[in-house]
Amino acid sequence: MRFTILPATALLLLASIGCTSKESVVLEKPVLVINGTTVTTKQYSERLALRLRTYDALSAKDEANLERAKEETVKAFILENIARTYADKNGIKVTESEINDQAKKIQSSYPDEFSFRRALADEHIAYEDWKNDLSLTVLQKKILEAITAKLPEPTEAEMKEYYEANKAKFQQVAKVRLRQIVLEKEDDAKRILDQLNEKGEMAKLAKQFSIAPEGSNGGDTGWLDKGTLEVFDQAFKMNVGARSKILKSPYGYHIYEVLKKEPEGRLNFPEAKDKIRAILKERREQVAFSTWLEGQVRQSSVKRDDALLQAIKVTTRGS
């Protein structure tokens, strides 16, 4: 069971080697050798500490939890080695620009930079550790794409068969797509509404003034299911092209216009076809990738110093 450490009482978890006065020497000893690549005790301990960061001190010292985390860490090193080896052999690289683009995409789902950093802090994750993990995730995605690039597309018959067996999945609630501006203060919302009434452009004003994440995209919310948020319920009663009055929610003061609407109902096969193709394609890719990965794991040479792994203990700062 995982526990979230309360920030007010958190003790930083550290993986360390007890039982020796020559700790610096021990930390450089290989604890794993994966396909000829050495993982030192220090590297392993640091990775283990990151894995234990969401445990409280008592849970992290529990032997069962610790052994499970150790084995998960070993597996993570093996999978990373396989990914990096394949990438090197096949000329697959991840650029800093690709990492930054992906980071921006993730951060855009938060209201602002502070909220994103606070979320990392709540999980006791350093930004650089998060970015390193993100780099590996991007690399693994590129490897997946390379390995599955030549897989055949789902056939018409396969897609129809899936549709007939899963019709309930294509029952959809009413949806609406909006362009909105969200302001922190009602007075600001009134000023923006005045500008809109004077033929101001909502997309332009959203980019300038909206505090919502989609503001940078001209206020386009994308499709919203009915019931997503109470403040949007009014939109389902409005015509396409209509604009709301100022509406208050826990997120601020909203002004929106209706871009598109879709009624409640079940998608027919032609309407569901693209979605089905994506589902079947993803399923096929996952099977192919899992099969490839299992083969790579079986072929890997993994040497481990179990005595040294056993000697790695968890201590807490100040204990």
Rank of each mutant, 00 (worst) to 15 (best):
M1E: 09
R2G: 11
F3L: 15
I5R: 15
L6P: 13
A8H: 14
L11R: 12
L12T: 14
L13I: 13
L13T: 08
G18I: 15
G18F: 10
T20P: 02
S24T: 13
P30K: 01
L32N: 05
I34G: 07
R47K: 11
R51P: 04
L52G: 02
R53I: 04
A57L: 08
K61D: 09
T73Y: 00
F77H: 05
N81C: 08
A83H: 04
T85Y: 07
Y86G: 04
D88P: 03
S97C: 15
S97F: 13
E98P: 06
E98Q: 14
K105I: 08
K105L: 15
Q107H: 06
Q107P: 01
Q107W: 00
Y110S: 01
E113K: 14
S115P: 02
R117M: 10
H124D: 10
H124F: 14
A126Q: 12
K131Y: 10
D133Y: 03
L134H: 01
T137V: 13
T137S: 15
T137E: 13
V138T: 02
A146W: 04
E153S: 11
P154S: 03
M159Q: 07
N166A: 09
K169T: 12
Q171F: 13
V173S: 14
A174V: 01
K175I: 04
R179T: 05
I181S: 00
K185C: 12
E186H: 14
A189F: 05
K190E: 13
K190D: 11
R191Q: 12
D194F: 10
D194K: 15
L196K: 10
N197D: 11
K199E: 12
M202N: 01
A206F: 05
K207Q: 10
Q208M: 14
F209R: 04
P213A: 05
W223A: 02
L224F: 05
K226D: 02
F232M: 01
F232P: 02
D233W: 03
K237L: 14
M238W: 02
M238Q: 10
K245V: 15
I246E: 00
G252E: 00
Y253Q: 06
K260P: 03
E264G: 03
P270F: 00
E271F: 02
A272F: 04
R277V: 04
A278N: 07
I279V: 06
E282I: 04
E285P: 03
V287C: 02
S290L: 15
T291H: 05
V297Q: 06
R298G: 04
S300R: 08
S301Q: 10
R304W: 00
L308Q: 00
K313Y: 11
T316F: 10
S319E: 14
